[in-house]
Design a protein around this nucleic acid. Sequence first.
RNA 1: GCGCGGUUAGCUCAGUGGUAGAGCACUACAUUGACACUGUAGGGGUCAGAGGUUCGAACCCUCUAUCGCGCACCA
Length: 994
Amino acid sequence: MSEISKAYEPQSVEDKWYRFWLDRKCFVADPARVSPRRPAYSIVIPPPNVTGVLTMGHVLNNTIQDILARKARMDGKEVLWLPGTDHAGIATQTVVEKALKKAGEIKHRDDWGREKFLERVWQWKEKHGGIIIQQLKKLGASCDWTRERFTMDEAYSRCVQKAFVELYKKGLIYRGKRMVNWCPATQTALSDEEVVMKEQKGSLYYFKVEVVDCSGAVSAPPSGNAAVTDRRYNEIKSTGVWLTIATTRPETIPGDTAVAVNPKDPRYAKFIGKHVVRPLPAELPRELKLIPIIGDEHVDFEFGTGVLKVTPAHDQADFEIGQRHKLPQIDIMHPNGHMNAAAGIGLNGLDRFKARKIAVELLTEMGALEKEEPYTNNVGFSERADVPIEPRLSEQWFLKYPSVEQARNCVEQEDDSAGRASPRAGSSAAEDGSRERSTHQQMRFHPQRWAKVYDHWMGNIQDWCISRQLWWGHRIPVWYPKSGSGACQSRDGSPADLHPRLHDIWCNINPPPDPENWEQDPDVLDTWFSSWLWPFATMGWPEQTPALKAFYPTSDLVTGPDIIFFWVARMIMAGYEFMGDPKFGLPDAKPFQNVYFTGIIRDKQGRKMSKSLGNSPDPLDLIGRHGADALRFGTMRSAPLGQDILFDEQNVELGRNFCNKLWNACRFRQMVGRADFPIQGEIDPKLLTADDKWILLKLDAAIREMNTAFAEYKFSDATATLYRFFWSEYCDWYVEASKAALSGGRRCESAQTEIQSGLMSAATEDEARKANTLAVIDFVLSHTLRLFHPFLPFITEELWHGMGYAEDMPDDQGGQTIMTAPWPKPLDDDFKSHYGLTGDDEKQIETRNELVSQGRNLRRNANIAANKKVNFILKPAREVTRHDVEVLKLLLNAESVEVKADYQPSKSTMTVRTESGDLFLPREGLIDVEAEKMRLKKELQKIDTDIARVEQKLANPNFVQKVPAEVLQEHQQRLAAWQAKRGHVTSALAALES
RNA sequence: GCGCGGUUAGCUCAGUGGUAGAGCACUACAUUGACACUGUAGGGGUCAGAGGUUCGAACCCUCUAUCGCGCACCA
C-alpha cells in the first residue's frame, strides 16, 4: 500500500481478493483437520432456486451466514459452509414453460411430451443455474464451492429415492384417494403449506329447494357419478315446504348429494330423513335429483339459514360429512377447473367462475334464487400460481410424518428453563465468543418466539401430500404392473377407496428387473421432499462419510421464518429419522444446534419486496455502485434480530461511508510514518499517554461487546458497536488527540540510545512518544481490522496486507490472509496491569473530553469561526503536563492554552467548569453580554429542573430507606455536581450583571 | 376466533427498573494537512392511551386503541 488512493475503491479490490481466497482454498473444509483442539463448525446454505437471481433477502441471509462462517474460522474452527441450489419444481417448470410459450415454441408442455420438455428444462438449468452462485461470490460468500450440491444431482436423487423407499417400507408413505388442494392453473396437487388464505369479496347466494316425501325408496349402493340416478323411487310427494340454503359456490350445486341440518336445530330436525329436489342440472328430471336431508352436528345454526348443501367431491368439510353419512361423490369439474358433463348442459365446459355466474342465472330463471348478499370470506389460493385452489378428490401419495415427537421436543421453549433460555450476556461463553456444542443441548431458535410457532404446528401436524403432477422433479420410485389387475387403478377413477392396500407394486430405488412389464408412477415428488434431506444428503448420506462424521449435526441454520414449516420443521424430522440410525453413532440426530430466523426485507413503505411491485433493488447494482462490504454492513446495521427490515439505499450509503472512513484512518496511519523506532512495534508502558490507555480500554470494551453480540446473534448490535468504537471513539477522539504526539518529534536516529542511557531530553521524549503512539495505533488497527473482517471481508483483507499486519503473523494465523487471523481476545488482567490501564485513565480522558466539548461550545456561543484560533486559559483541577496542553490546543483549535492555577476571570470572560478544571475564554470587548446572559439563564433553568427532580427523590423517606446504597450514593453525587455547577453558573451570571 | 410481534426525535430503529439514545434528515459554522463518502456545535421526544405494582416505570402487570404477521375457519 505504497500509493493509497484518497477514497476507497471497492471495484478494484473485491475480485482480486475473492480470487485469492479461492486460489488458496481458504473456503475448503477438510474433515481430517477436525480435532478436539480444532472443532468443526458447519452451516448448510438454504439452497436458492437454481434459476433464481439474488434478492435483498438472499443478501441478508447469506451475509449473516458468511459472518458466522468467517468468525468461526477466526475462532480457529474447521469451517464448512456448504452451498448449493434447489431444483424448485413448480417454480422452475412454470418459468421454463412460460418462456417456451412466449417464444412460440409450444402452446402447452404436452406438445412436446415429458422427455423433450425435461431436456429443455435441463438446458435452462445449465444456462441460468450458475447466475445466483456467481452473485453469491460477488457478495463475498465464503462457501466451500468444491462441495456445491444441486437437489437433482444423481447422488442426491438416490438419497431422495432411498428416503421414499424406507418410509414406504415402514408404512409411513401410502397412496390414497383424498381431498387435496388442487391447483387448476398448474394442475397439480399441493400441500397445505402451499395454500395461502386470502380474503375475497364475493356474494352469499340464497336459493330454495323443495322438501319431498319419497316413500318406498329403494336404496342402491352409491357408485360414483351415477349414484343419484341409480336410486329408484315409487312415488315422490311434494310437501309444499321449501328450505332456503345459503352458499358462496352455486356452481357446485350439481355436485350436491345431500342437504344437512343440525339435528338439534328445532326448525329443521323434523325434516331429517326426507329429501329435497336439487335444482341443478336443470335439464335432469326431478326424480334423478333427489338428495337426502341429513342431520350433522357440523352444521352451525347461526350461519346463513342453518341449512347446508353438501358437496362431498368439492369441499373438505363436505367430504368429511359425506364420509360420515356414506354419501356419494359427484365430481363435476375437470382438473383444469372447467366444469364437466356432470355439471349439466348449462355449465359443462365453463370455467368455474363463469359457471358460478351462469348457475346464478339458471337459479334466477327457475325462480329458485331468493337473494344475493355481498359477502367476504377467506379463500385458499395457490401460493405459486396465485389462483384459488380447488378442493378435489384425487389419488395421491401421502406421508405420515416420521419422528414427530423427537422433533417436537428437541427445540427449547421459552419456559423450558429460564436460566438457559435467557441470553447469556457477559457469560464466559460469550466472552470467548464460542457457543457450546454439546450434542445433548436442545436446539435453540433465535429469536426464541419461533419455538412456540413451531411447537404449535408440530402439535397439529397433518399428513403431507408429497406427489405432484409435474414433470420437473424426482420421479416417485414406484412401478405398477402393466397388465395390472387390482393394483392399477385409473387416477381419477372410482370408487373412492380411501386407503387402498396396494399390493404388487414395485417400490425400490432401482427399477424392476423386468421393466417391460411395469410402468413407473408418472408423478414427481414435492420439492420439499428433497430439500428436507439437505443437511445430510449433501454430505454423503446414507454412507457414514468423513464429512458427515465431522460436520453433522450442523452448527447454525440461517433462514427466513416463512419456511419454518416448509423446510425447517421437516429437516428436523428427517434428521431424527435418517441420521438416528445407530451406525451414525449420534446421541442426538438433530440437524442443527441453532436456527436463526431473519426478518423479512421490506421497502420504505413497509411493503414486501416483489418483482411485480418493482420495489426490489438489484443487489448487484448496489454492489457495483457502493461495494459488497458497504452492502453487507448497511444491511447488517439495519437488521435487528427477528425484526422485519425496511430497506433503504441510505443504509448502503452509510456502509460505503464507513468503509471510506476505515480506509482513510489507515491511510492516515500510513502517512504519519513507520513505527520502527524506538520500540519496533512493541508498546512501551512507560510512554503511554492517558489517551493511549483510554483507547486500549475502549478497544477492550468493544471486543467484549462484539463477543456478547455474537453469542446472542445480534448482528445489528455488533455493527453498532464497531461503528461507535471506530468512528466516535477511535477517529473522533483518539486520532485527533494523537496528532499532538505525532506532530511532535523529529530526530529519531539518536533517541534510542539516549533512552537507554537515561539521557532522554524533551525532544527525544517526543520522538519516543511518537513511535509509541504509532505502536498503539497499529495495535488498535490490527485488532479492529480483525473485528471488522466478518462484516467487511474485502476491505479488511486489502488493508491487512496493505498495512503490513500480515507480516507480523504466523502463516496460518493471519500471515497469509486475515481470514485465519485469530479473533481478538478481550484484554486480560495481566495485559491491563502490564500497561497500567485503569479506570482512572478512562475517567480522566472522559472528563477531559467533556471539557473540550464545552470549550468548543463556548467558541460557538461566542460566534468564533471554527477556523479561528483563540486563546484559552485553563485552571486545572489536577496536574497537567506539557503533552496535555498540546492535546487541548489541538482539540480546541486554540492558539494557546495558558495554565493558570489562580486565574481570576474578568467580567467579559466566558467560562465553563468541569471535573477536569475550569476553562476560560477571555473576550475583551467582543462578548455579547446579553446573549451570554441568555445562554447562562437557559443553562441555569435546566440545572434547576434536574436538581429539583433529584431533591424530590432524596426528600422521599421511602427512597432513602429502600434504595440500594450505590443508587443512593449516585443520586447524592449527581445532586452535588449539579449544585456546584449551579453555583458556578450563578456567579458567572452575577459577574456579567455587576 | 387463537397466537405472535410492533407503536420511543421528521424518517428508520436501539434501549430488561435508577439523568431518554444512535444513524439519516434538519440548522449554523469550517475546507491544502487521513477522510465533504468530512469535521465541530446545535435544534428536535407527555416513550400510543388508561389503570396498577414500585421509593422510582419507555422497561413489569391489566385493559384499550392501532398497525403488521402467523394459525384456524361457517357453507
